[in-house]
């Protein structure tokens, strides 16, 4: 980000930390009815900014505005950025409509990601609910790429219905790997679904890990994370080893606009990934 800013500052005056950098849409994949994955590359080439799994960018639709969107691509791939966007508001809807050749603004990366360094040598449990898989996918790439660096890996992904599953083909291929268990479950399905039906928390009791040396990562609706964290804690994982990726609206991403506060934390600066031990008191209170 700093390098970017310095580059842009040349000859154009100081835009400050608020200016987006033009990126071109290289490809677009429609994941579900309302969710789209965009692959972006900086206009004018260059490697683009590196990121840590779990971080996010502010994506800018020209003339519409910005939204905070997590990176969902492989962190080891240089030159491109992958973002999965669900059309919810004006900005995300405009972003969802972009196609190859269109330009989108990017500033980032922002925030603190998954505790990859702490995970090495330990068992890892990954729990994703719905679009929550997107910010977890970069760390899943990392787990698969350096599989020998980790102990047992359990991935549990839940979605409302089979039609809402993201990255379907990729998950199918991941599921063929025998060194990792990747479970997929849906809340409800018709007879064409051969997989599991149920919520992710139901998969916790028979997940295989050593609670004393396990790091758990989760992202999804707050209620899903709350119940999943409780289920993992009941299995003996310390709250400081359970990490949640939180979501709040934000305008600046640099702890200046105030919108994303959750208790004392700025989700943009202190998060989005935070340990359960630190946010549990606030998750227990309504309307924080």
């Amino acid at each position: 980000m700093r390098e970017f800013a310095a580059e842009l500052a040349t000859g154009t005056g100081d835009p400050g930390p608020y200016a987006p950098f033009p990126h071109r849409v290289i490809s677009r994949t429609k994941e579900t009815a309302d969710t789209t994955t965009l692959v972006l590359a900086p206009v004018g080439g260059g490697k683009g900014a590196r990121f840590s799994p779990g971080q996010f960018n502010m994506l800018y639709a020209f003339g519409v505005g910005e939204a905070a969107i997590s990176m969902s691509g492989d962190p080891s791939e240089e030159g491109t950025l992958v973002h999965t966007v669900r059309a919810v508001g004006n900005v995300s809807t405009a972003l969802s409509r972009l196609g190859p050749g269109d330009v989108v603004g990017v500033r980032g990366p922002y925030g603190k990601g998954w505790p990859v360094d702490q995970m090495r040598g330990k068992d890892v449990v990954v729990m994703a609910g719905g679009l929550g898989l997107a910010p977890l996918r970069p760390v899943i790439y990392e787990l698969y790429a350096h599989r020998e660096d980790y102990g047992r890996v359990e991935i549990i992904y839940g979605s409302r219905s089979p039609a809402e599953l993201l990255y379907y083909d990729e998950i199918q291929s991941w599921r063929t790997r025998t060194d990792t268990r990747f479970q997929v479950t849906v809340d409800s399905a018709d007879r064409n679904w051969y997989g599991d039906v149920g919520v992710v928390t139901q998969r916790v009791p028979d997940a295989r890990f050593d609670p004393a040396r396990t790091i758990a990562l989760m992202c999804g609706p707050e209620i899903m994370m709350k119940l999943s964290a409780q289920a993992l804690e009941a299995r003996g994982i310390a709250p400081s080893d359970i990490w949640l990726s939180m979501e709040r609206n934000m305008k600046c991403a640099i702890a200046q606009c105030g919108h994303c506060q959750f208790g004392p934390y700025f989700i943009c600066r202190d998060g989005p990934v935070l340990p359960y031990a630190r946010i549990r008191p606030f998750l227990a209170v309504r309307e924080v």
Partner: peptide
Amino acid sequence: RLWTAERSPEGFHILPRS
């Protein structure tokens, strides 16, 4: 005003603070 941007062949560019 934080910035002004103009559409350009490269998509858009940010104009200097004048």
